[in-house]
């Protein structure tokens, strides 16, 4: 099986600033890949490039064997934006029904997607009346409702309580076990340890692309936080510090 996402020499400028500066990365199918990096490092821009809504300056992004943004891909990907992009003046259920209909799915599937994110009890509530964490789960349900082959999730677990976060990660791994590819951004290191693979970006450059274990081994420490610090310092002291997969 080929990679679900293949990025080659990706350069993106936004507002006159270089946000991504020559990214090369691959995401294998049927895995959970974590995209990590500080705020402003280019995580969202990379995700936008993958789902095909970002104007790119150079490089290629291939998704499920087709150029990112190809019309045929729209049935096959699910995208969760960082700010919950659901209709505040509709109920959770109505939102899920609408996004299900766009993907040719029925109401039963929509209701299941709502239950899967733990919102069955709030299904009839207007999204505008939900808490921040609930709202972001409503948005997640709408990203998963089409049962896409590739799911791109921009910080899906922000504001969720620890139990729910564990549930969501278990759900992500269930999906991956069933063959779905997930690209999940986060800035929480304990979530990094839950990923099959990690992409670490900083200031628009890829610092690491490997499994959590290999990253720990390369840095010579058990703590991922510390490992990333060492990789970043090594990267700053010389170009040879960049980790290849």
């Amino acid at each position: 099986m080929g990679d679900a996402i293949a990025v080659r020499g990706l350069v993106v400028n936004r507002g006159g600033r270089r946000v991504l500066d020559g990214i090369d990365a691959a995401v294998p199918r049927g895995s959970v890949t974590g995209l990590l990096g500080p705020s402003g490092s280019g995580k969202t821009t990379l995700m936008r490039a993958v789902v095909g809504v970002q104007v790119i300056a150079a490089g290629t992004v291939t998704v499920l064997g087709q150029p990112a943004g190809a019309a045929q891909l729209r049935h096959r990907i699910g995208y969760l934006t960082q700010a919950p992009s659901v209709y505040a003046d509709l109920t959770v259920r109505e939102n899920a029904h609408y996004f299900a209909a766009l993907h040719g799915r029925g109401r039963a599937e929509a209701d299941r997607a709502v239950a899967d994110v733990g919102l069955a009890d709030a299904a009839h509530q207007l999204v505008g009346t939900l808490s921040g964490g609930q709202r972001s789960r409503a948005s997640l349900a709408c990203a998963l409702v089409g049962e896409p082959e590739l799911v791109v999730l921009d910080e899906p677990t922000v504001g969720q309580d620890p139990v729910l976060r564990a549930d969501l990660w278990a759900r992500f791994h269930e999906l991956a076990a069933a063959g779905t590819t997930l690209l999940v951004s986060s800035h929480v290191m304990d979530e990094a340890a839950r990923c099959d693979r990690l992409l670490l970006i900083r200031e628009g450059r890829l610092v690491a692309d490997d499994t959590p274990d290999a990253i720990r081994a390369a840095a010579g420490v058990d703590d991922l936080d510390e490992a990333f610090l060492r990789l970043i310092r090594a990267g700053e002291s010389g170009p040879a510090g960049r980790e290849a997969s």
Partner: peptide, 8 residues
């Protein structure tokens, strides 16, 4: 932005 990533 999300709608434009769907088949709509």
């Amino acid at each position: 932005e999300r709608l434009l990533t769907t088949p709509l």
